[in-house]
Write a protein that binds this DNA or RNA. Structure first.
Length: 615
RNA sequence: GCGCCCGUAGCUCAACCGGAUAGAGCACCGGAUUUCUAAUCCGGAUGUUGCAGGUUCGAGUCCUGCCGGGCGCGCCA
């Protein structure tokens, strides 16, 4: 293991100017049908020198899309339209040239030019049957791509301060982050999930002081509680639980003596600072630290439990304290110093963030000698890269958008491309109950915790609702709908499809109509109803949807897809009885539904929602 | 004041590097069950994509300005 400084002197920092790119929208063999179309187009272009040049910087795969309208076939390419400009030719003429040069494939039944120059491809029924077969073969691996060796992704999310329980806003970060992690993994990336614990700095002192006061209170010493302190009931709980062995209860007079008032808001900070000083003074540094460390570990463990119950786990809980203790912050500052990227002003040490695109320069060491949060951030993100992760994703609350530029600036100053840091901002959550907005405030103690929300609506509805909307949209979380067991509730609508299918298979067993899978597979051409064809087509899109959702970090894409898929299923189910007398048709339909069940279960798994056998 | 995000049907929201007629759910009205789970299905309509320009063969999507909402702008974390 080389040390940070050794790396610095060996010049590693300057050798990283090429941004790592997540391979975008490449068509893989996991999407056989789309791949077939893309390959045909690609080959045709290769044989057309006058077009090949213009097409060279065009990713042909990306021009191939599913059609929205069945009349346009199954896939369409707008490649001719894309090439119209650089070649200065009529797009319909280009399309004609391409179509004439297209090879044939037995899975494609018809190719036509439509509209301004789209090339539409109609796939054969056999193509969809083959896809259904691979769904059944792959099972829970369907839609998952082969493992990619690089880039190795570090996904940081939630990272809520350990000063109290997670609230409903953190829940959205949790559900979104977990779903994005699952999506990336499904598309083959190696993802390291990390929670950064802000367990250093003044807020920990405030937490410690808050607990200390509750402990004194429980022992008969009443002190005006700081308005800037943490007033939630959980602070009392912690005060009652922590090990106070070795701590000597101080005199009430000693605690109260010399405390400033906190009449106006301007005094709040001074008052809580005075209490922190008192705590250190009267309990000793070690004594106060004993309270502080236990308090934060109690809360951190509570958060970890809460998340685990929510189905959200991490590979690593990264302590900010450990950054300081291991010297990584000092090392980072040393690197900046050696590079001439620090300067002194007004007694503080500054980092010239404006040189790296930030709005203003930032302080890293205050005049009082304390390192800022930003100094930790530089060291932390630098450390992420040093640990071998070459693509960083931070999922942050939208109120943190101001930090993005400076953290990126910090990374660049440390020698890593800023583009390798991606930040996804998640907008706020508003809870509605009975049509009224529920107010939240951590400090006042009147907040809705994630735990309470989960108890009220259940994990499945919570996970689902949190990712149902785009992360850059405010989320209105309607508790009445989330808890309703009715057709208002999309999560049940999807789960119900899964349960319904499971029920059909149970029923088949009861009736001794055992599913002959092989027979079903060889009779797929019996699936001629429009609803069944729609289902076949919808299912075959799943791998493309997963890739699209992963690429865009957009779990809601998967949510919408699942609802559409399941809608097709319910239509089909309603229109056609499965367990009929015709064994060939029956086995074929069971094959169809077995595949639907697989796709639904796989999709829900990515979202972190259960797929029940019965409801 | 400056910066970032958002503005799409009555409501909540989709819309795949700009692509074909902007789509769902809810709400509302009417219908379907002697049948494998009715938490289901079938039918019925709704748009100046905030406004005004611009780029383009093509704009909800890109650019400029304005209006409205959210967030941020500390030697706090």
């Amino acid at each position: 293991m080389t040390s940070i400084r050794a790396n610095f002197f060996s010049g590693v920092y300057t050798d990283t100017n090429n941004p790592v790119e997540l391979p975008p929208r490449q068509t893989t063999p996991e999407h056989p049908m789309k791949h077939i179309v893309a390959k045909l187009v690609n080959d045709a272009l290769a044989g057309l020198p006058e077009l090949a040049e213009a097409a060279a910087d065009l990713a042909v795969e990306t021009t191939v899309e599913r059609t929205r309208d069945a009349r346009h076939g199954d896939f369409a390419s707008n490649v001719a339209l894309q090439l119209a400009k650089p070649t200065r030719k009529n797009p319909r003429d280009i399309a004609t040239r391409i179509v004439d040069a297209l090879g044939t494939d037995e899975q494609i039944t018809k190719i036509e030019i439509a509209g301004p120059g789209f090339i539409n491809f109609h796939m054969s029924a056999a193509a969809f049957h083959a896809e259904l077969g691979s769904i059944l073969d792959a099972g829970n691996a369907y839609g998952r791509q082969a493992k990619k060796e690089s880039p190795k992704i570090l996904l940081e999310f939630i990272s809520a301060n350990p000063t109290g329980p997670l609230h409903v806003g953190h829940g959205r970060l949790a559900a979104f982050g977990a779903a994005v992690g699952n999506l990336l993994e499904a598309t083959g990336y190696q993802v390291h999930r990390e929670y950064y614990v802000n367990d250093a700095g003044r807020q920990m002192d405030i937490l410690g002081a808050s607990v200390w006061l509750r402990w004194l209170e429980a022992n008969g010493i009443s002190v005006p509680f700081p308005k800037a302190g943490y007033r939630g009931e959980y602070i009392r709980d912690i005060a009652g639980e922590i090990d106070t062995g070795g701590l000597v209860l101080p005199n009430a007079d000693d605690v109260l003596q010399g405390l400033p008032d906190q009449e106006s808001e301007d005094d709040w900070d001074a008052y809580v600072d005075a209490l922190i000083a008192k705590a250190s003074d009267l309990q000793g540094e070690d004594g106060f630290d004993q309270i502080r460390q236990q308090s934060l570990e109690s809360i951190r463990a509570e958060i970890e439990d809460d998340l685990a119950d929510f189905g959200v786990t991490f590979d690593q809980w990264y302590s900010e304290q450990s950054l300081a203790k291991s010297g990584r912050i000092d090392d980072a500052l040393t690197v900046l110093e050696e590079r001439g990227l620090l300067y002194k002003k007004d007694g503080a040490t500054w980092f010239p963030a404006t040189d790296f695109g930030d709005e203003k320069d930032r302080v890293v060491i205050r005049a009082n000698g304390a390192k800022t949060y930003f100094a930790s951030d530089i060291a932390y993100h630098f450390d992420k890269r040093e640990r071998g992760f070459d693509y960083l994703i931070d999922i942050l609350g939208a109120d943190h958008h101001g930090y993005v530029a400076r953290v990126r600036a910090g990374l660049e100053a440390m020698g890593y491309p800023g583009d390798d840091l991606e930040v996804e901002l998640v907008q706020f959550v508003s809870l509605y109950r009975g049509g009224k907005k529920v107010a939240m405030s951590t400090r006042s103690g009147q907040f809705d915790t994630l735990r309470k929300l989960r108890a009220e609506v259940g994990n499945d509805a919570a996970r689902f609702y949190y990712v149902m909307r785009s992360n850059d949209q405010h989320l209105e979380f309607d508790l009445d709908i989330a808890t309703s067991q009715s057709n208002d509730n999309p999560v049940f609508y999807i789960q119900y499809a899964h349960a319904r299918i499971a029920s059909v298979f149970r029923k088949a067993d009861e009736l001794d109509l055992y599913w002959d899978q092989d027979n079903g597979r060889t009779n797929l051409d019996k699936l001629v109803a429009p609803q069944e064809k729609a289902l076949l087509s919808a299912m075959s899109r799943y791998p493309e949807i997963v890739e699209l959702a992963a690429k865009n970090r957009a779990p809601q894409t998967l949510v919408h897809y699942l609802r559409d898929l399941v809608s097709d299923f319910h239509s089909s189910y309603n229109a056609h009885k499965v367990l009929g007398d015709d064994a060939n048709l029956r086995d074929a339909r069971l094959a169809l539904y077995a595949a639907v069940r697989i796709v639904v279960a796989n999709g829900l798994a990515i979202l972190g929602v259960s797929a029940p056998e019965e409801m």
